[in-house]
């Protein structure tokens, strides 16, 4: 009897343990799904090319544009090109500082923060101009 009592006890502990770990994985799983959903929503938008935008500041969240030229002094333009802002590359706006300026832009595998005044000078290939 003593042994079986111990057995019940052990079973109970096992059950509690498995419930605990299950609920933990469940929580983690849910958190993960939530994140996945968040990114999935963004991903769906990311692909959306916006041919109307003429410069980076006109791109809305989840839109992308193709860089046409950098309307900046030589030094700044070179620096930006080294960071990945090359004509022909797709650019997507990301998060920003509170107030929307500066904003992070995703380009060529990197994320680079630019002030609004700089972003305005990065001209996109626009349908409107053609």
């Amino acid at each position: 009897m003593v042994y079986s009592g111990d057995g019940v006890n052990a079973q109970l502990q096992l059950a509690i343990k498995s419930w605990y770990s299950k609920s933990l994985t469940l929580q983690l799983f849910q958190l993960d799904t939530w994140f996945e959903m968040q990114t999935a929503v963004k991903k769906a938008h990311q692909a959306k090319h916006n041919p109307e935008a003429t410069n980076l500041t006109e791109l809305k969240h989840g839109e992308s544009g193709i860089l046409d030229r950098l309307d900046l002094p030589e030094d700044d333009a070179r620096r930006l090109m080294e960071l990945g802002f090359l004509p022909g590359h797709a650019i997507t706006p990301g998060h920003s500082a509170p107030g929307g300026d500066p904003r992070v832009f995703r380009v060529d595998g990197s994320e680079v923060a630019l002030r609004r005044e700089t972003a305005r000078r990065l001209i996109l290939r626009s349908a409107r101009l053609k």
Binding site: L72, D76, L80, L83, P102, V112, A113, L114, R115, T118
Partner: peptide
């Protein structure tokens, strides 16, 4: 004049 700010994240 205000100078540019570019910072890789």
């Amino acid at each position: 004049s205000r100078s540019s700010f570019m910072l890789e994240m």
